[in-house]
């Protein structure tokens, strides 16, 4: 399965719904999406990872890159993920301390930055 991406606006936040596999092949698409959003002035992002079936450190690199971009505009990047296999990758690398990770989009959207 390839990578699927869609975006929607919820209040002041932009929700990016990611599905499929984020690897060295597909990660550039996600990076472009995040760059486009920041370029168009959307600095408060929620990345919904519930549909992600595979994630490697290339994907982590893109998410960290996105975080740095929104932080440069005093923005935020929150993740939605409850899948243990994906959360494990964030824990191993210590990125659970870097990204706020939520159990639902509703929770992420309601969070205070």
């Amino acid at each position: 399965m390839d990578l699927s991406l869609s975006t929607r606006t919820e209040g002041e936040r932009t929700v990016v719904v990611v599905g499929g596999e984020i690897d060295v092949y597909t990660a550039p698409k996600l990076r472009e999406q995040l760059i486009d959003l920041v370029s168009s002035g959307q600095y408060h992002l929620v990345v919904d990872m519930e549909g992600v079936e595979f994630l490697d450190s290339t994907g982590l690199g893109v998410l960290v890159g996105g975080l740095k971009r929104v932080r440069a505009h005093e923005g935020s990047l929150r993740l939605v993920c409850t899948q243990e296999r994906i959360l494990k990758i964030f824990r191993i690398t210590g990125l659970t301390k870097v990204f706020p990770i939520h159990a639902s989009v509703e929770e992420a959207v309601a969070a205070t930055d």
Binding site: V64, K68, I92, T93, G94, K97, V98
Partner: peptide
């Protein structure tokens, strides 16, 4: 500290 390295390196 992979997370720290990534924040530095990306």
């Amino acid at each position: 500290d992979p997370a720290g390295d990534m924040l530095e390196a990306v």
